[in-house]
Design a protein around this nucleic acid. Structure first.
Lengths: 212, 212
DNA sequence: CGCTTTGTTGATCATATGATCAACAGTTGG
DNA sequence: CCAACTGTTGATCATATGATCAACAAAGCG
């Protein structure tokens, strides 16, 4: 008798209501909030989020002091797992050809960021001027692109060397695939790998770094 | 006695209030709305906009039926003046070297789009899924990048030819300069010209198009 | 000057929204 | 089975927000 077969109507509602341990519920709320705010933006209404989650709006405020606190939790969830500390190391590992390092990095990185929720929340928070956003880009500049600049210069066999703007161009051209796909919702290749590879090769070729 | 010297306090308010012909006021509202929504996003409150404009909130609704109608006017103002119909023609003019055509286009185009209000409103409306946004990108694809693809292929002297993804990469890498500057508010070169030129040259070099 | 026209305001309405709280109900431990 | 604990709800509050409207006032016109 403890288990009803859901509401007798045809509504696809799972059960009447769920009672969960605090930690679990909190995580469910965060996950739902990530999807919700990615969909409608950070100005999305708490009542709509609650409806998506199948809970009451007031319950949100048992787990988060305010809507801002909830958004901070969303930021933390989305940003934190996207900064792998070993990339700076691997990118500087000169026992591997530079092309291989670049392709490995952008293969991993594109898998991480070409994701609907990340792309959109990153853009929403960027437009809102969120601090985390600035820190993330600062990190990208200092820990990824700057070392990469040194690597390209070291591997380049010509007088012409890249500057930081060239690195940002490489990076931006790749990131733009995700922007087209998730921000502008344009049709994009299901696998960005080949396009990335060609982009990296064009870049390296321009600085006379061997590409094969 | 018709002209007070403004409020006697130290407030920098221009005059007590202005009475303008309808067309003029309407344009002032649109201009102010463009700046306002670019600053705070399309969810900006009409009362705040009115305060920026130095008018009453209710006056907005004398000129626009609803907030949505005002936003449509903002879109029209911002989008319409950015689609020059002669670019497709100039990009296909083979009496000029391809490099010159590309540099001329991106020189003009970057001047148009690397502008705070355009960049931000384009991104806000893109995230909101605005119809105009999709049409704009469709236009960019069909009228600019597709012809450009044919031009690069025609000028290329090698077996390797670009595909549409390569063109989007060229385009995205350049546009990303504006995104860094106006969306992420990162420090950027005051003149993007050299970076654009190097980007174009790397692209052409990859397809063996003469760059000098 | 008086009359009409029209740009502008201040008060107000209906609803939406973030946040709060007492009461309810499932769970655990004795 | 009772009691304490805690996850959850429904009602409610205070304020914000898009939108409306009667009244005011500056300009045009006879």
């Amino acid at each position: 008798m403890s288990k009803h077969t859901g509401t007798p109507q045809d509504a696809p509602r799972t059960a009447k209501r769920q009672r969960l341990p605090a930690g679990e519920r909190r995580q469910k709320i965060i996950d739902g909030a990530v999807a919700f705010f990615a969909k409608v933006g950070l100005e999305g209404k708490t009542r709509d989020l609650a409806k998506d989650l199948g809970i009451t709006q007031s319950l949100l405020f048992k787990y988060f002091e305010s809507k801002d606190a909830l958004i901070e939790a969303v930021y933390a969830q989305v940003y934190l797992e996207r900064l792998s500390p070993d990339w700076p190391v691997r990118l500087a590992d000169r026992s591997v050809p530079l092309r291989g390092r670049l392709l490995a990095f952008y293969s991993d990185y594109s898998k991480l960021i070409f994701e609907h929720e990340w792309m959109r929340i990153f853009m929403f928070s960027g437009l809102a001027g969120a601090e985390l956003n600035r820190r993330y880009l600062e990190h990208m500049h200092r820990m990824i692109l700057h070392p990469l600049l040194e690597e390209v210069r070291a591997s380049s066999s010509q007088a012409i060397t890249p500057d930081m703007e060239d690195l940002w161009n490489l990076h931006g051209g790749i990131v733009y695939i995700g922007i087209r796909q998730h921000i502008y919702r344009m049709p994009c290749p299901e696998n960005p790998g080949p396009a990335i590879e060609r982009t990296v090769d064009r870049f390296l070729q321009a600085f006379s770094v061997p590409t094969s």
